[in-house]
Amino acid sequence: MSTSEDVREPVRRRRKGAAPRRVGFTGRMMLPGIVPLAALTVLPFLTIVVMSFSDVRLLGGMRLDFAGLKNWGRFFTDPEMGWFWLRTAGYFALTLGLEMVLGVVLALCVWRLVRGRNLVLSLLLLPMFVAPVIVGLLGRFLTDPTFGLYTWLLERVGYDGDLLGGTFTAFAAVVAMDVWEWTPLIALITLAGLSAVPPTLREAAALDGAGRWQTLRHIVLPSISNVLLVALLIRAMDAIRYFDIIWVTTNGGPANATKIVPVRLYETAFRFFDFGYAAVVGLAMLFASIVVARLFVRMLDRKGLAR
């Protein structure tokens, strides 16, 4: 447990004498934030753990009847579950990957812009402030087979299928909507990193006769790798949780093509009211997101960020 702590001595731990008083003060500072947070999260978490071992009855007030390992057993034998996880991993990798690549490309382009940089950046940022529900509904509006603008455009270029109707295209469409909304965030964070790359570094590279591509590859990208990891972490935290876009566009269809685990969880809880099983799926999801987040945090730590 303490190994990660020992990896690197916190930079600011210097005066031993002040330490005992500090703990008291910092502790008191944290309490008003941590206590409500704990109240809002620990109790529900424990309830979910208990629920995962119970039959959850709703009528006339919730009751939990001990059900042993029934829900967990079902989770590990559910023939469909594997597919949902696989699809989720695919969705996750694809959206995050595209957002990272496009975000970095956009950031590099904006970075090199002389005039109108602020305006362009402001315009590019707009999607990240749009409510996901609105993104989904707007997506439906634009791809409506009868009057959607994008349907019409695709027809002009010879595609007359229906975007949300086919398994492949529906998956692509929900990925595209997510990418539309969140690429700006990655671009924004990357740009912050780029603006902080010391010009001396690039000048040194230029003196060494490095080409543009080499400068980018060997100087610029490595020096913003931390920032990219932070971007990945921030985005990953939400990507696993949010499903609003899929919920309002395809509802998981067609043929389950867009049914990722969060959608499946929501459905289990609030359409089938199988809260015992939903608790199991929820815990598994939490576990998966913690593993992913840990991974990113570790990578950040290894880079020397003591946070």
């Binding site: 409506d144 087979p145 009868t146 229906d162 086919g166 067609p254």
Partner: peptide
Amino acid sequence: PASTTWDWTGLGAAFAAGR
């Protein structure tokens, strides 16, 4: 072929639009 993207609402709109 757009049928697989329609629920009753979508179908209703398509019918009303004369499709």
